[in-house]
Amino acid sequence: MKAGGALLEAEGLVRRYAMRRGLLGRAVEVRAVDGVSLKLERGRTLGLVGESGCGKSTTGRLVLGMETPDAGRVSFDGAVMPQPGSAAWRAMRARMQMVFQDPLGALDRRLPIATQVGEPLEIHGIGARSERAARVETLLRAVGLRSDQGARYPHELSGGQRQRAVLARALATDPALLVCDEPISALDVSIQAQVMNLLVDLQEQFGTAMLFVSHDLRAVRQVSHRVAVMYLGRIVEEGEPDGVLHEPAHPYSRALVSAIPHPGRAGQRIVLQGDPPNPADRPSGCAFHPRCPVATSLCARETPALKARPDGRLVACHVAHGEVSAGQGHARQEAA
């Protein structure tokens, strides 16, 4: 392991899909991820937050090489990621693992838990056969499962226990990076808390860096050291979780924060008009401008770049950077 430097660096990632409308429709290009750069330090957690279709999950898959970017590059531990599918890439994948939302879908229903937790050890040829059983037991204990639960099948465990098993399997190869894609969304509230606590504990114990992909800002604050807010394939704001949550700079982050249901809320909620736009029909300029309450005519023309404010917060917004004073919202302006 090299000292210093980020563990994971992604630069200008782009992922396009071709989508056909109807049987004879013309294929249109959908930019699921449209120029995302991010950096993750060793042993830290970056929260990636946004609504469905914003490209946060695709970003997670791109940094693991589970999908090949159309542009941009990923480097891991100071080296450029090998061609996905190659032997070098497969060897590297032992050091970066993925945790999915639905643990039942991620586990093989026909194999007992312990066998599945031990599988990565076999695949990557880690340890002698005799040592593996002991390693599996250590892993099960680390995620809070009893060793007798290792003999059970996925359907015999509860949702929270299954997610623990998935985590144990992901940790088997002692990865430096875990990409967790909505790891708690399918769980009940009290179980969500258990898994969030577990993620924080495991990070402390193993020093694993995490990319925590979620739509839940509260959960992201709980587990992350930094947070990036995505909208329609781009990062629109990035900073410390408390800063972003308490003083969001981008109008979209503001709406997202204000939409968190919250007992005893003070003040007025910002309710955004309309739906998130279709990525196949990306608005001109700032993609958020049709829903933005402070959009100006500049916002409809020019795409704002993600730049640092004096206090270090990264934000992509003409108004937040003071390049133009707050408008009345583009839609209303047009109507007037």
Partner: peptide
């Protein structure tokens, strides 16, 4: 109390969540 404690807070220091052990 457990349900309320399991909700990650929006402000204040980050503390361990008061997760309810076990399952339904």
């Amino acid at each position: 109390q457990g349900l309320i404690g399991a909700l990650p807070p929006m402000d204040g220091p980050r503390r361990r969540l008061a997760a309810i052990p076990g399952g339904v």
